[in-house]
Design a binder for these strands. Sequence first.
DNA 1: TCGCGGATGAACT
DNA 2: GTTCATCCGCGAG
Length: 209
Amino acid sequence: MTGSEPRAARRMRPRALRRNELPLDTVALARFLIGKLVVRELEGERLVGRIVETEAYLVGDEACHAFRGMTERNRSLFRPRGHAYVYLAYGTSWMLNVSSQAEGIGEGVLIRALEPLAGADAMARARGTEVRRDLARGPGRLAQALAIDRALDGADLCAKGPIWLADDGAKPLVVGESVRIGLTKAAERVLRFYARGNPYLSGPKRLSP
DNA sequence: TCGCGGATGAACT
DNA sequence: GTTCATCCGCGAG
């Protein structure tokens, strides 16, 4: 690789996000993460996806798993910001969240969808589908594509381990917002964020104008 | 494109 | 026993 590529088109090598650059506010973090990367190191292969959809879960928010305090399941949500909280939903789908506050405060950001950037073949194998748009469109599919399960619960996403968050220097995306998806409690709160116009979004189209 | 019903496992009442 | 931060397949519009 030489410097002949036009500057505007050149993409930085993914740089791990530092904990101290993550916004202290959970909603701000949910917006900040739109356009950033999830990097998954799996069996010597690097799977990368751009985050295009997130949701915030807050203190005092009935839909937040921490609403009734810390339990064995949700303890990772109370870790300092930048740690993974992974749990199984509906007995079938793993969910990847990023803890977002100081130690002891249970807030987080659910990563709902990725645009595949690297390792799409491995994602397709894990998902059992060749449909690129469906590889990581939705939190359960995303986890399946990246082989995310209980073993990654509590992982430090600001360290280059099996899974980490990164910035590739891409131009910031235009962020839209809507109510969150699939909730029965606090369903009216506008805490979902997405990359406007991106084809890899989950949920009904009316929520992503 | 949307909405519905079943599958599924763990936490919690 | 009930409740899910979901997915898939299917049928209707």
